[in-house]
Amino acid sequence: MTEYKLVVVGAGGVGKSALTIQLIQNHFVDEYDPTIEDSYRKQVVIDGETCLLDILDTAGQEEYSAMRDQYMRTGEGFLCVFAINNTKSFEDIHHYREQIKRVKDSEDVPMVLVGNKCDLPSRTVDTKQAQDLARSYGIPFIETSAKTRQGVDDAFYTLVREIRKHKEKMSKDGKKKKKKSKTKCVIM
Rank of each mutant, 00 (worst) to 15 (best):
63 E>M: 03
64 Y>I: 08
64 Y>F: 08
64 Y>V: 09
64 Y>G: 14
65 S>I: 06
66 A>H: 10
66 A>Q: 09
66 A>V: 08
66 A>G: 12
68 R>K: 13
68 R>N: 15
68 R>A: 14
69 D>M: 02
69 D>P: 05
70 Q>N: 09
70 Q>W: 03
70 Q>C: 08
71 Y>V: 12
71 Y>G: 14
71 Y>F: 12
72 M>G: 06
72 M>A: 07
73 R>P: 11
73 R>N: 12
74 T>M: 13
74 T>S: 12
74 T>L: 07
74 T>C: 11
75 G>P: 06
75 G>K: 03
75 G>F: 05
75 G>H: 06
76 E>T: 13
77 G>V: 12
77 G>N: 00
77 G>Y: 04
77 G>H: 01
78 F>L: 05
78 F>M: 04
78 F>A: 01
78 F>V: 07
80 C>W: 03
80 C>R: 00
80 C>Q: 02
80 C>F: 14
80 C>S: 02
80 C>M: 12
81 V>T: 07
82 F>E: 01
83 A>S: 13
84 I>P: 15
84 I>V: 13
86 N>D: 15
87 T>E: 15
88 K>M: 11
89 S>G: 06
92 D>F: 07
92 D>W: 15
93 I>V: 08
93 I>R: 00
94 H>R: 12
97 R>P: 03
97 R>N: 04
97 R>G: 06
98 E>N: 04
98 E>K: 04
98 E>D: 06
99 Q>G: 04
100 I>M: 05
100 I>P: 01
100 I>W: 06
101 K>V: 05
101 K>I: 06
101 K>R: 11
101 K>S: 09
102 R>A: 08
102 R>C: 07
102 R>N: 05
102 R>V: 04
103 V>S: 06
103 V>K: 03
103 V>I: 13
103 V>G: 04
105 D>Q: 10
106 S>F: 10
106 S>V: 11
107 E>L: 10
107 E>Q: 06
107 E>V: 11
107 E>P: 08
107 E>C: 11
107 E>F: 11
108 D>G: 06
108 D>L: 04
108 D>T: 06
109 V>H: 02
109 V>G: 02
109 V>P: 04
109 V>C: 06
109 V>Q: 02
110 P>T: 02
110 P>F: 02
110 P>L: 02
111 M>P: 00
112 V>M: 04
112 V>Y: 02
112 V>E: 00
112 V>L: 05
112 V>P: 00
113 L>Q: 01
113 L>R: 00
114 V>C: 04
114 V>I: 12
114 V>E: 00
114 V>H: 00
115 G>D: 02
115 G>W: 07
115 G>M: 12
115 G>T: 05
116 N>D: 07
116 N>L: 15
116 N>Q: 15
116 N>W: 00
117 K>F: 15
117 K>A: 14
117 K>T: 14
118 C>Q: 07
118 C>Y: 10
119 D>T: 05
119 D>N: 06
120 L>K: 08
121 P>R: 08
121 P>K: 11
121 P>A: 10
122 S>A: 10
122 S>H: 10
122 S>W: 07
122 S>Y: 10
123 R>S: 14
123 R>Q: 13
123 R>L: 11
123 R>Y: 09
124 T>V: 09
124 T>K: 09
124 T>R: 09
125 V>W: 10
125 V>E: 12
126 D>T: 07
126 D>N: 09
